[in-house]
Design a protein around this nucleic acid. Sequence first.
DNA 1: CACTTGTGACTGACTGGTCAGTTAGTTATA
DNA 2: TATAACTAACTGACCAGTCAGTCACAAGTG
Lengths: 216, 216
Amino acid sequence: MAKPKEVVGKRNAKVGYGSKRANRRKEIIRVASRLFSEKSYHDVTMEEIAEKVGVAKGTIYLYFDSKEKLYLEILEDSYQDIESLIKKEIAKSDPAPQKLKKVLNLIFGFYRQNLDILRILSRDETHLIREHYEFTEHWRLRRLRLYERILEKGVKEGSFRPINTKLTALVIFGLVRSVMFFHETDKSVEEIVDEVFSLIGNGILSEERKKSLEVS
Amino acid sequence: MAKPKEVVGKRNAKVGYGSKRANRRKEIIRVASRLFSEKSYHDVTMEEIAEKVGVAKGTIYLYFDSKEKLYLEILEDSYQDIESLIKKEIAKSDPAPQKLKKVLNLIFGFYRQNLDILRILSRDETHLIREHYEFTEHWRLRRLRLYERILEKGVKEGSFRPINTKLTALVIFGLVRSVMFFHETDKSVEEIVDEVFSLIGNGILSEERKKSLEVS
DNA sequence: CACTTGTGACTGACTGGTCAGTTAGTTATA
DNA sequence: TATAACTAACTGACCAGTCAGTCACAAGTG
């Protein structure tokens, strides 16, 4: 415990000693993220990444085992970042509607600030490699469960109607992506979330219409 | 007008004379669709397509100028199919809510019957080539406008609340994809559409909750 | 100090393999 | 037999990953 643990070990290990080496790593990830957000996986070459970082191609391989590993690390980092952000901000005791709104704000906010990552994650290149598929699937399910738990809590509390929580979670999952990705960015995240929340909160039918449906 | 137009012309023209040649074309598209739905664009090789069709690679090039053209034609065909399906079924006079439900039924139904196409269209490989991006964008906007028009009609009729139709269209666009793609297929299309429609129609908040929000 | 040895970061030419697209030649068909 | 359909071998470009070697600098040594 006294001595700091020997940290050199494997070259491409993630653990960094906040030094030059760690910075290079980060710089490579930064550049690669931007490139992967602009083009598909196969259209980004290691040569190109190296060039934009300002090193030779071989150097990249001193930090990452392979192109796939580099790509997957970008994905994992992003998912981790979002999730830890949510974990930090959400208090268990919040009533479900507030909780849902908070989560939406955090997610929309994160994506707004990390458009490259939004573009990468939105793309469904789940066929690249087996690992990638499992990866994406894993994180998708985590996100769905998060929504579901909030919805279930709301139903129990009585703040939400007795809805199909699984389906509703899917609906929220889908709309987040499309709204974030395609909505004009002239509105603040808060405004967008307010509108989205009011929409899924109250629905689109008018009161008269709802009444007439109840009758029939 | 009397004589059928000279149709031979360019080898790879789409126009077919319902014969052998046209069938080959269709078969190639069918096989390619399945492969493109299983793997990413770059991971499907022309060799593989040829093999699965049962011809030599060169033969594919007698029907399609390039891999890109083949891919884009699959996309275009799919978009066209869905849109013409909708156009055929939707009467202008339907009230907005029914219209929306009908459209959702048609789209969900189409995807349920064409899972390959759902997988291809869901993937956002919009970076492949410039043409592909414009393509996808074009059809996305058409779909959004369709939703928007229905929503506007409903607002005017008074069957929908005065909602932000642009945002709502995006929400619907997003949820269709994610619900269709990920929802267990043990339910019929009608059941799913009913549930989705009730969700976006009435919202998730309970009546008490809505009232308490109105007060605050 | 002058030197040697060591080392981690980095380089870039090279390899092995892949694959879209071509073409010269063969087969089927009208 | 003329033409369309088809084939299979080939070409050229591309690219992930490798590896022998360079370089700047630090640590040891007499």
